[in-house]
Design a protein around this nucleic acid. Structure first.
Lengths: 178, 178
DNA sequence: ACCTGAACACCGTTCAAGT
DNA sequence: ACCTGAACACCGTTCAAGT
């Protein structure tokens, strides 16, 4: 089968799930696709460009789920979508500044707040919630990577859990509605 | 002058400030110190170990400033300390899960909330605020790197500013005090 | 104890040349 | 148009050997 941007992004997505960001190299990707490293650059401008494609793919899954009008639920859905892919928060956090409008959940969230707040505040409300979600999940995933690498042993701490996550989401939403 | 862990951490700190995380390699560090790459590994276990040392150093500066009892001010101080060093949020976010107790500001913030909340909630309150701060500054710094690399041009957007940051901090603190 | 020299197994990216 | 082959300029880490 011929190479294409879509096929490369698909392969990168799979490799990210299975081996994490540290295991995702252009050379490995080329090898898995049975092609020379240089061939990738005919379809993809750079590794960063490729990661932008992967980020869109990760969030595309969550976009289907997040057809709710409850911001708390949207935040939890987003977290779940991120947790399905290793190191995804790092990837998304980068792409979010690179292409702020390409990532649908952020757009969705902003519109959700726009129903109850003036435009400027809705933007900031969405930004606050997103920074929290990405900050939380980034740490959660960093921790998971350390456990996987057995650098740290899996104390069943309550620090990174759904309820810990919800506490923050509830706090922010409470702060917004006052 | 003889090599030592402290000298290596100092050099790494300087290089991080000047060239960012992408420009911080063990080989470059060795070159700057006038030594062979292998020599570093006599004083430092790995690059991750070195970054942990750098993270402590970054936050040591902020610890001096953060002798306040106002959480909002503490959050702003922390952000300012982070903004002084390129890519510091990424470095800290990693070390925070690696050695959660080694980073004094988080400890300080938790004690600050403990004065007004039960222990469990104080812990979660501090975690919420910290995730937001790290999430916000991580994006802010990612954006700054993209501007520096001229991948994106510096639209004077209000997205990453002190007032945008404060909006989130105020929201979270309001949510906590209800 | 502390460092060198040299190697091992990798990276991202470019680009002439082939088909 | 699409890909190969080969190179360029790098990585982190290890380890025998020297001083």
């Amino acid at each position: 089968m011929a190479l294409s941007r879509t096929r490369i992004v698909d392969a990168a997505y799979t490799t990210l799930c299975e081996h994490g960001l540290a295991g995702l190299s252009m050379r490995r990707l080329a090898h898995d696709l049975g092609v020379q490293p240089g061939a990738l650059y005919y379809h993809v401008a750079s590794k960063q460009d490729l990661l932008a494609g992967v980020a869109e793919r990760i969030l595309a899954d969550s976009a289907k789920l997040t057809s709710t009008s409850d911001p708390a639920r949207a935040a939890c859905d987003l977290r779940e979508a991120l947790l399905r892919v290793r190191d995804s928060a790092d990837v998304i956090s980068f792409v979010h500044v690179f292409r702020p409008d390409a990532l649908t959940p952020f757009h969705t969230l902003r519109e959700l707040f726009a129903a109850r707040l003036p435009a400027r505040q809705a933007h900031r409300a969405a930004q606050t919630l997103i920074c929290y979600v990405l900050g939380f999940v980034a740490e959660e995933q960093n921790y998971a990577e350390l456990v996987r690498a057995k650098i740290v042993n899996d104390r069943p701490s309550d620090t990174y859990s759904l309820s810990a996550f919800r506490f923050g989401v509830a706090t922010i939403l409470r702060g917004l509605s006052t």
